[in-house]
Amino acid sequence: MSLPLNIDLQQILLHMLNFVLLFGGLYFILYKPVKKFMDGRASRYAEKEEETERRLREAEEAKAEYEDKLRNAESEIAAMKSEAAAQAAADAEAERERALADAEGIRRSAEAEADAEKQRLLRQANREISELAAQAAQKAVYGSAEEAFDSFLDRAERSDGE
């Protein structure tokens, strides 16, 4: 069958064969390796981008966390200051009470010492009076009774004055 425009089925099939050969050859020799390289590079870049985004996200989270901590630090410092002031006040009160207790102890000790000294002096005075009485009695026996009596009175007055 003769077709118009010199259309020839055999030549169409030959052209098709030629194109299919070209397609197969170009695909395996050139297209596939170039596409494989491009896809590999694109996937490597995508991984790098993903990694960068992940790190950026982590850095932003850390920054937010630090900023939060910074904001809380001021209130923490104020709390610590007030706690330290309260502690200092408590320490000062305890020290004052301890000083008062010490002073009371010193005062009591001094009073006890004073009492003991008084008793000692009284005992000493009594002893001296006894001694004077004994001496007076001795003088009365051995000397003028009047002189001995005067001497006794003088000594007794002196000891009262002390």
């Binding site: 030629n18 194109f19 050969l21 050859g25 020799i29 050139l30």
Partner: peptide, 25 residues
């Protein structure tokens, strides 16, 4: 087979392209 000159051109173009592709590869 008696063919049009364009078919010879087609085979020539395919040959040239495949050779170029092979060299590039």
């Amino acid at each position: 087979i008696t063919v049009n000159p364009a078919l010879i051109s087609a085979f020539c173009v395919t040959g040239i392209l495949l050779l170029a592709a092979l060299l590039l590869r």
